[in-house]
Amino acid sequence: MSRRLQLHSAAALSVYSSSMLAAFILMHALGTETPGFATAVYVLIGAAAMVLSAAVTLLTVRAGMYDDYQLRCVERVSAVTRCASLVLTPIIAIAAVALDSLGFAVCVSLLLNWLLLFADAAAAAVIGNRR
């Protein structure tokens, strides 16, 4: 697997898995064993975001759009995205527990992580296409 593909796959997986983990820990903490409709929607949209990210990655890698400097820029964006996800996910989980609302956690996590994934993919595409 190329370094570029690894970069995006790792970023996408990191965002998605950390948010999923937080959602399921939260569900367990709240005593909800059966994933509800909101979680199903969450999983579906999360998967769609991953597919989008992977598609952008494959297209840019295939076109050979990055040089070393651009790749470094993309790495920075991905690092910031991953950090934001890792920091924000537990904050949302804690807020959800404080508010006693699984729906809140699921919806906000969904929106936030989708936006982060989208920002990551969009930044990669923009940087790649500028060349």
Binding site: D67, D68, Y69, Q70, R72, C73, R130, R131
Partner: peptide
Amino acid sequence: VGVSRQSIAAIEKGRFDPTIWL
């Protein structure tokens, strides 16, 4: 030389050290 405009700009400003081949 087969790189982006941004790379040249970064090299000129000393923000990026090129590879030995570049």
